[in-house]
Design a protein around this nucleic acid. Structure first.
Lengths: 133, 133
DNA sequence: TTGCAAGTACGATGACTATCGTATATAATT
DNA sequence: AATTATATACGATAGTCATCGTACTTGCAA
């Protein structure tokens, strides 16, 4: 069967890449070593693995870097919010058939939100209600 | 570096598998042909591709099947809710650093919920608030 | 200045995915 | 009975990912 060529302009970070991004989002610019140390706290992983992932991310323009002595300092080139939004859209479609409400209900149902969190959500809902009028 | 063998008992459905599951969740038991027709509405895909995916899912026990004439009727072996919960947990960790609230806020912020949806969420929140006391 | 330690670069590997072509089996039709 | 249409089975392929070993580079310390 003939199939139309499919470009790969999507650039969705993989799970391993997301782990790196989360470190950078939290700590700001870091060396490979710093990122690796952060990751190694949660799972066993080789240094060169972390390095390779970050190099890939650099090639994909997910990260930028600056030489610093004999090493590099990497910075996230994608924002936390924008990335999460993209992933969320994708996840919504693939796992919840696009129903944001299903997802919200499920997420709320299975976690115990704090009082403050409940209040934030309520506030957001009120606002949404007003927008509707 | 020596690395401990890693079993693959996780059995997380891939995206293509999820598409199949969503059809089966919605329509109930189906033949490959039926599933394929449903999928083909949204994207271009070969019949044997769909077939292969469903065969893989059968091997992984994500689907069961019954012979029916010269074909098979497949049924989802995993529930929509349980699967979504698993995926959600995973997604929360990987994309939102585990913060359910961040995710909920983001999901609510970028979709326009209907009045009824807002009410359902409010109701759920009220209930959660009571539980806390 | 010579050698080590801390980095990077590069390439290989095994796993898994999605995709499809081709071969085979069999029911239905003529 | 022969042909056609419908399904399945099987295997190949190309792409992506995570993982790591090894080789190379370069400051710095003795």
């Amino acid at each position: 069967m003939l199939v139309v060529a499919k470009k790969n302009t999507m650039s969705k970070p993989t799970e391993a890449e997301l782990e790196v991004l989360q470190v950078l989002w939290e700590k700001g610019a870091c060396t490979v070593k710093q990122v690796h140390e952060a990751l190694a706290k949660n799972k066993e992983v080789g240094y060169t693995t972390t390095l390779k992932i970050m190099q890939n991310m650099y090639d994909k323009k997910l990260l930028s870097r600056e030489p610093a002595g004999r090493s590099h300092i990497y910075t996230a080139m994608v924002s936390e919010e924008a990335t999460q939004q993209k992933l969320l859209d994708r996840f919504l479609k693939s796992a919840f058939g696009g129903s944001a409400m299903k997802l919200v209900m499920q997420a709320l149902g299975n976690h115990q939100p704090s009082k403050e969190e409940i209040e934030s959500i309520k506030a957001l809902l009120e606002q949404k209600e007003k927008e509707k009028k």
